[in-house]
Design a protein around this nucleic acid. Sequence first.
DNA 1: GCCAACGTTGGC
DNA 2: GCCAACGTTGGC
Length: 151
Amino acid sequence: MKYWLMKSEADVYSIDELKKDRTTMWDGVRNYQARNNMREMRKGDRVLYYHSRQTPPAVVGLANVVKEAYPDPTQFDRKSKYFDAKSNLQDPRWWLVDVRFDRKFDTPVALQEIKDDAKLSGMVLVNNSRLSVQPVTKAEFDRVMKLAGET
DNA sequence: GCCAACGTTGGC
DNA sequence: GCCAACGTTGGC
């Protein structure tokens, strides 16, 4: 099993909305590294759910991968803001996964706490803050869970 | 709302 | 293939 961190702008699609929807298509990713990471995801992988653009930015809960990579339909939808004229059906450029709500933390783990934690100094979140879908090691995952008071 | 950091585009 | 210009992300 692998571990990941996925970012969502808190005011655009929060973990509360994921909880309500139960499952969502992670559409709209238009960054190759993030796309490649989603293609590496396997059913059952665990995902730290991160809220950016909120005060403070924080890991707020957990999700699971429930459907492995398939073409992002929004790239073919002319009405979508994610439409990409350079993509085509035979060789789609953008891929996504489906994720399901697992739980919301009672105690979110703020970005500052992560930055201040020596055990988490290698996290992609700390070193490449703009990548929206990123790998997390098991040790990092376990540490974040501990900071959240989760078992 | 500002702006640093980063990724992408496109001219040469 | 380099790199300047530009657009976007996301912390503050």
